[in-house]
Design a protein around this nucleic acid. Structure first.
Lengths: 254, 254
DNA sequence: CTCCAGGAAAATCTCGAGAAAATATGTTGA
DNA sequence: TCAACATATTTTCTCGAGATTTTCCTGGAG
């Protein structure tokens, strides 16, 4: 139980209580970045942002450093911070990695889940269905927000029984990135109706403990997002500031 | 090619040039933590550390924030920073997740690797063998260091052809954590001889493009580290400062 | 017209001091 | 003896200003 590792790790958690100005600025910045208020690759100048978010320079600086942890912003040596770039190739990789991890997480969740877990899934699915109805009746920013929130809750409920904190941690990061892509490329696009049936099938297979089927369904479900983004206007991904170096520069255990 | 995402992400890369004092402090702190100079769960007081590393308070603070990104340290609301805790349960999870990702990365690497990639693997394997010889002849801190360095290089060479930057990124984090566990639990313990044969078998299967066999071998290879840590003194994992919350609190794409 | 060099402007990086919070300590009462 | 409150100390959090670096603009030479 490596709870501790994530406890203060404002990166993945801490939606609840912004105890410090840093956390508050971190949250607001994260929301604005994920929501697409800043263009991909855009430079984030501390001098400008400290006015916008009404904090000191050092404070904002540390908030940006924390966001760099989530790979939402990048920090270059002596050249300040900028919003992480978006590219189709990255999203393809992101989606494949997410499918890999989410299948593993769902498999473990089905293996370890108890009755309460099943109940939570049904409940969150029901709430998502209601949000879907409201969205169909009256599409608005509020109803969309609510649908997104409950969609996230539904997907999360599927995995709550997964005992692998590391897998969930990485999935959290990938979720966030995925959401950023989705919002950026599919701005204000209506949510197709058939997603509801996908969710229903996933839920049924999961509760029936049919791991093979559930994994197949969730994989396809996630892959559909990739197709949707692929069909975005071709000029969507353009920004590409100079980048270099590759990961995996450290340590290995034998 | 999401190179940009990792470019300045000092978290996983940037061994080369500490362009700022923050990066320098970050590197030194990371080394000291991975090396075990600080006990797991130990509080990291800024006032003390700023003297030790000869930087200002704000500078050290930001370095700690970046290390929190790598999950080496944790930042709690108004209660400062502390070293991430270690537990056997966490290491088991860590290892399983690493096996999952590393198998996927190796599979992709075998799929995409070219002749130059094969050459790099053979070269790094050869260098590792030489380091092993030197280590057998004369065990010392230097020879151990060299072996560790080349072991890391060998494992990295296996995956250089993997096109999934996200998988490699996560693996980098897991590697680092794994190394921390290994050093903490197996301090100064000799490296068993048969590891050389494991590496040889992995290399041969990889170059022969026998993905199934290579994956099986690498999975077992990593799992052996888990066994080694399991056999550590039972009182190794004790520290457990208060922790709460779980990951996966954010976002999902539909 | 292109390319290189120099300098001005902007931004980042760094530091120490003051305010807020949390922990530790000491005291009082039951 | 134990619990609870008030105080004191430590630690974190926050801010603005100065030093260093990068960037951009201008000018001139080839």
């Amino acid at each position: 139980m490596p709870d501790i590792i994530w406890s203060g790790h404002d990166g993945a958690a801490a939606d609840d209580a912004p105890r410090t100005l840093i956390e508050a600025a971190c949250q607001r910045l994260r929301q604005d970045i994920v929501a697409g208020h800043y263009a991909p690759g855009e430079k984030l100048r501390v001098e400008h942002l400290k006015d916008r978010y009404e904090v000191g320079a050092g404070t904002l600086r540390e908030a940006l450093a924390r966001l760099a942890a989530e790979t939402l912003v990048v920090a270059q040596g002596q050249r300040g911070f900028s919003v992480a770039s978006l590219s189709l190739a990255d999203f393809e990789d992101l989606t494949r990695t997410r499918i890999n991890l989410e299948c593993e997480a769902l498999r473990l969740s089905i293996l370890h889940g108890d009755d309460a877990w099943e109940g939570q899934i049904m409940a969150s699915f029901h709430r998502l269905g209601r949000a879907q109805d409201k969205l169909d009746e009256q599409p608005s920013l509020d109803t969309v927000r609510e649908w997104e929130e409950r969609n996230r809750a539904f997907h999360r409920s599927l995995l709550t029984a997964c005992p692998s904190a590391w897998t969930l941690h990485f999935l959290g990061i990938l979720y966030q990135q995925s959401e950023r892509y989705r919002r950026y490329t599919l701005q204000n696009r209506p949510i197709p109706r058939n997603i509801h049936h996908e969710h229903e099938a996933i839920m049924q297979a999961t509760i029936a403990r049919d791991a093979d089927r559930a994994l197949q369904l969730i994989a396809r479900h996630i892959a559909l997002t990739l197709d949707a983004v692929r069909s975005a206007p071709p000029d969507t991904f353009v920004r590409r500031p100079a980048g270099r170096r590759t990961a995996l520069d450290r340590s290995v255990a034998g």
